[in-house]
């Protein structure tokens, strides 16, 4: 699993969490992570309904665990308009990582990278540096450096 600039989406303009999740499922299809947009969207939605994946400082990490996922991975979305997402600090969301895994045999190496990404989001430095980068290439390179392979 290598995070590439094709996994980065900038200036994303969505008006609600639900419409965003649909958009993310479509983006995952375009990036080759799924053949079933509807099923992936439903999985994101079901997890969100269980409990919001909003964190703090404007980040959210929706995730899908479903057979609709062909290969484990994640996408990064930077929103042009903040979304009203339920978060720890009640701040709206501007940056989203969408995580996707199949229910079985995701592979420990891939799971470790997703774990590394999640724990990186506990660090202020990671979030600030990520936001300071403006090109897809630089963003992909920075994320790969931080979560390792």
């Amino acid at each position: 699993m290598k995070f590439s600039n094709k996994d980065v989406f900038l200036d994303v303009n969505q008006t609600s969490v639900n419409s965003f999740l649909k958009y993310a499922a479509k983006a995952a299809y375009d990036a080759g992570y799924t053949n079933d947009i509807e099923k992936l969207d439903q999985s994101f939605l079901a997890r969100e309904q269980e409990f919001s994946t909003g964190l703090e400082d404007g980040f959210a990490i929706p995730h899908a665990k479903t057979t609709a996922v062909k290969k484990p991975g994640f996408l990064y979305f930077r929103l042009s308009k903040p979304l009203n997402w339920k978060t720890y600090d009640k701040k709206p969301v501007t940056d989203v990582f969408a995580l996707m895994v199949p229910p079985e045999n995701a592979g420990d190496k891939h799971l470790q990278m997703l774990a590394n990404l999640s724990t990186a989001l506990l660090e202020k430095d990671f979030k600030e540096k990520l936001r300071s980068l403006s090109s897809k290439e630089m963003i992909a390179q920075f994320i790969n450096e931080k979560i390792g392979e």
Partner: peptide, 17 residues
């Protein structure tokens, strides 16, 4: 956590820190 994906390592790291 339900998916065992993201919040599990986050909580562990946050508590240890």
């Amino acid at each position: 956590c339900p998916a065992g994906l993201a919040h599990t390592p986050m909580a562990a790291k946050a508590l240890e820190k």
